[in-house]
Amino acid sequence: MTTVNEEPTALLSIGEFAQRSGLSISALRFYGDCGLLVPARIDGSSGYRYYEAHQLREATLLRHLRALEMPIAEIQSFLTADPAAARAALDSYWKRLEQRFDRSRSAFAAVQLLLSSKEEAMPATTTLDGSELARALRQVLPAAGPIGKEPRYPAAVLIDLREDGVRLVATDGHRLAVRDLPSSTLDLGRTAIDAAEAERLASMAEDAGPITLSAGSELAVRASSVSVSFPAVSDHYPDYEAILARCGSSRLLVRTADLGARLDRNRDLVVLKLAGTATSSDGVAFPATYEGDDLTVGFNPSFLADALAAGIGPEAILQRGSPIDPVAIRSADGGTLTCLVMPIRLKD
């Protein structure tokens, strides 16, 4: 910036520059004082500010960045960055804007839901990340049994809104999967939906951003501007918490890859002999640590393989009680997924 006493030529006065740039005179003075858009010249006697025509591009850019509510400090860095860095900064800021909008949209949806149900019983409601919900649904869905077959229990996924978050449960009577998702819930409630509908919900949720669930006589789902209701299954859902409580204290610690290598899905049975370590039915011992009474137990290898593939982690803990109780399979690092598999009774 140059301060002169004579009248400059080939420059735009602050009034002309304001009209052509779309910025107000007061905004131009503010941006000049904070160093964002410094006048080309200031008259030393009158204090009049003048701008060069090429500064219109910078002024227009500044106007749009402020329309995006970009903070002044970030604009200063943006305007002095090279084109590649400026593009990266803009992309990063846009992602933050989208996340903020998603949070606002979810809050708006929750308020709408509360207002619409003001005269009715308050539904159990929670909001969580859609991609996390989709992944969790697909972790438990195999335990609901093959879609279209006739399992012992209805092929369904229970969505249980609890004080500490959302719990997803699926079982076909031979195995059970439980996945916990942390979230803040409004009231408590649960709804079981058909397994095929649960897969449809997973597809809807995976790219939806924040998603709001309301459990009641049906499962109401709101994501972005889309609202969908999933009918509840009418059959009584089993008491999964009582089943979880039956897991005992005998524990097998094993790497999932080592146990998975012993499972042949083409067979109907895999037998594990547990006595300090582990040996499979083909007589091959594999690295493992077992704590409990010596035990020989049989499983459906496909059920065990599905449990390990659901996302247990690199190391698993198999925990069981009596010979007729289910075996709980959990991540050794304290993950939020638990799979239960019923053992197969072996002939003496």
Rank of each mutant, 00 (worst) to 15 (best):
L181N: 05
E132W: 05
A170C: 14
L201T: 06
E199S: 15
L188E: 11
D187K: 13
A192P: 15
V140M: 06
K149A: 13
G165D: 03
R190S: 14
L141Y: 05
A205K: 08
S203G: 04
R138H: 06
H174G: 11
D207E: 04
E163D: 10
R135K: 15
E206L: 00
R175Q: 14
S184P: 03
V169S: 09
D164Q: 15
L137F: 09
R138K: 08
A177F: 12
E206P: 00
E163F: 03
P146L: 08
L176F: 00
G189L: 05
L188Y: 07
G148K: 02
A195R: 15
T185E: 01
A144E: 03
G145A: 05
Q139R: 13
S183Y: 02
R135Y: 09
E199D: 15
S131R: 13
A202S: 14
G130M: 06
A205D: 00
D164H: 13
G173P: 13
A143K: 07
P182F: 11
D160E: 04
A170N: 09
R179G: 00
G173S: 12
V140N: 07
A192C: 03
D160A: 08
V157T: 07
G130W: 08
R167A: 05
P151S: 10
G173R: 14
A136T: 07
I147W: 03
E163M: 10
L181K: 05
T171Q: 10
R179Y: 08
L158G: 04
T191A: 15
R175E: 12
G189P: 08
R167T: 09
L161W: 02
R152Q: 14
K149N: 11
A144T: 02
E163W: 01
P142Y: 04
H174Y: 12
R152C: 01
A134D: 03
R138W: 02
L133H: 08
R152D: 02
R152M: 12
H174V: 01
R190K: 12
L186A: 03
P151K: 10
R190F: 02
T185H: 05
G189N: 05
K149E: 13
D207H: 08
A144K: 07
I159C: 10
